[in-house]
Simulated assay, not measured.
Amino acid sequence: MPDDTESRPGSATSLVRSVIGLYLRRLDGWIASADLIALLEDLGVPAALGRTAIARVKQKKLLVSERNSGAAGYRLGEDAAAMLRAGDRRIFAPRRMAAGDPWCLLSFSIPEHDRALRHQLRRRLRWIGCGTVSPALWICPAFLSGEVEEILDELSLREHSKVFIATDARGAAPLRDSVSTWWDLPRIAALHEGFIAEASGLLSTSPTDGADAFGRYVRGIDSWRPIPYLDPGLGVELLPTHWAGDRSEQLFARLGARLAEPALAHVLARVAPH
């Protein structure tokens, strides 16, 4: 999962994370401080605000300070590469259930003296796209079960929980109606609609140069980045008709096809070799 689920898309801190996730591995995991600040300025982030945002990202251990050939700069933190690879799978290859695919259910009972841990578990389950059947029973597509179990291990909650893989979900109401109570589908649809508005503007004209392509692409990625986490990828038969996610995903693909290569070329030209 992202290192900070509360970073607002479009904020300086969120843009730093997007730049790091998109490009730092392409730069052998290190970037000079001056080059990172320059790239943020290409995104309209003033240098002073950029430095503050970088400091916040360092606090989350996504970046660590390191000098290279005498130049001050930043390297990916120890666990950052694995986190970014997991993020790539979510962001660039979102999955969707097919009819008949299994579900993952998580049941837990956490003692009252650990209620802060219970709150943290629920927050993280919500962030990876889980729905709420009841306060202590959560559900998601089975392809997210690995992420559910990672959260349980990271919070040391195995002894207080049970994970089930189910091939069917039955109740008095049709499954489609139940899904609409387990997930806040209007909120997820609004996220997609917001991205549609953002991406439509970014793609409405051709970029004037490499810096413009870079700025449009990074801002588009930054706007899209939370959506594949909060949208669990439910099957189309379970979603409202004319689901906004379909057009949203198509626009995301168009954004990458048009802007990813010129944006990368701008970064490689901007960043000094080391």
Score class of each variant (00 low, 15 high):
residue 6 E to C: 10
residue 8 R to W: 11
residue 13 T to S: 11
residue 13 T to Y: 02
residue 13 T to W: 01
residue 14 S to Y: 03
residue 14 S to L: 11
residue 17 R to P: 04
residue 19 V to M: 07
residue 20 I to L: 07
residue 22 L to R: 14
residue 22 L to F: 00
residue 25 R to K: 11
residue 28 D to R: 15
residue 36 L to E: 04
residue 37 I to Y: 01
residue 39 L to D: 03
residue 40 L to S: 06
residue 42 D to L: 05
residue 47 A to Y: 10
residue 49 L to V: 14
residue 50 G to D: 09
residue 52 T to N: 04
residue 53 A to N: 02
residue 59 Q to F: 04
residue 60 K to A: 07
residue 62 L to T: 00
residue 63 L to A: 01
residue 66 E to H: 09
residue 66 E to M: 06
residue 68 N to E: 13
residue 68 N to M: 11
residue 69 S to T: 15
residue 69 S to W: 14
residue 71 A to Q: 15
residue 74 Y to I: 06
residue 76 L to K: 04
residue 78 E to A: 12
residue 80 A to R: 03
residue 80 A to Y: 02
residue 80 A to L: 05
residue 82 A to Q: 11
residue 84 L to P: 00
residue 91 I to F: 10
residue 92 F to P: 05
residue 92 F to N: 05
residue 93 A to H: 14
residue 94 P to K: 05
residue 95 R to G: 03
residue 97 M to F: 11
residue 97 M to K: 02
residue 102 P to N: 06
residue 103 W to C: 05
residue 105 L to M: 13
residue 106 L to E: 02
residue 108 F to W: 08
residue 109 S to Y: 11
residue 109 S to L: 13
residue 110 I to F: 11
residue 110 I to P: 03
residue 111 P to R: 09
residue 112 E to Y: 04
residue 113 H to Y: 11
residue 113 H to L: 06
residue 118 R to P: 03
residue 120 Q to D: 15
residue 123 R to I: 02
residue 126 R to A: 10
residue 128 I to T: 08
residue 129 G to T: 01
residue 130 C to W: 03
residue 130 C to T: 10
residue 136 A to G: 07
residue 140 C to Y: 10
residue 142 A to E: 09
residue 143 F to C: 03
residue 146 G to V: 06
residue 147 E to H: 12
residue 148 V to Y: 08
residue 151 I to L: 10
residue 154 E to Y: 08
residue 155 L to H: 07
residue 156 S to L: 14
residue 157 L to S: 04
residue 158 R to S: 09
residue 158 R to L: 01
residue 158 R to F: 05
residue 159 E to W: 11
residue 160 H to W: 13
residue 161 S to M: 02
residue 163 V to D: 05
residue 165 I to P: 07
residue 166 A to L: 07
residue 168 D to H: 12
residue 172 A to D: 15
residue 173 A to M: 14
residue 174 P to I: 11
residue 177 D to N: 13
residue 177 D to Q: 15
residue 180 S to G: 09
residue 181 T to W: 13
residue 185 L to H: 07
residue 188 I to V: 15
residue 190 A to W: 10
residue 195 F to N: 07
residue 196 I to G: 04
residue 199 A to D: 00
residue 199 A to W: 02
residue 199 A to G: 03
residue 199 A to K: 01
residue 199 A to V: 00
residue 201 G to M: 05
residue 201 G to D: 08
residue 202 L to D: 00
residue 205 T to I: 11
residue 206 S to H: 12
residue 208 T to W: 13
residue 209 D to R: 07
residue 209 D to Y: 06
residue 209 D to I: 00
residue 213 A to P: 04
residue 215 G to M: 05
residue 220 G to W: 01
residue 224 W to R: 01
residue 226 P to K: 06
residue 227 I to T: 02
residue 227 I to P: 00
residue 228 P to W: 01
residue 229 Y to Q: 14
residue 230 L to R: 08
residue 230 L to Q: 09
residue 231 D to Q: 04
residue 231 D to I: 10
residue 234 L to C: 02
residue 236 V to L: 14
residue 237 E to R: 11
residue 239 L to N: 03
residue 241 T to Q: 12
residue 242 H to T: 10
residue 243 W to L: 13
residue 243 W to D: 09
residue 243 W to E: 11
residue 246 D to K: 14
residue 248 S to Y: 01
residue 249 E to C: 08
residue 249 E to M: 12
residue 252 F to V: 00
residue 253 A to I: 02
residue 256 G to F: 00
residue 260 A to W: 08
residue 262 P to W: 05
residue 263 A to T: 02
residue 263 A to S: 13
residue 265 A to M: 07
residue 266 H to I: 00
residue 268 L to N: 01
residue 269 A to T: 13
residue 269 A to D: 06
residue 269 A to V: 06
residue 271 V to N: 01
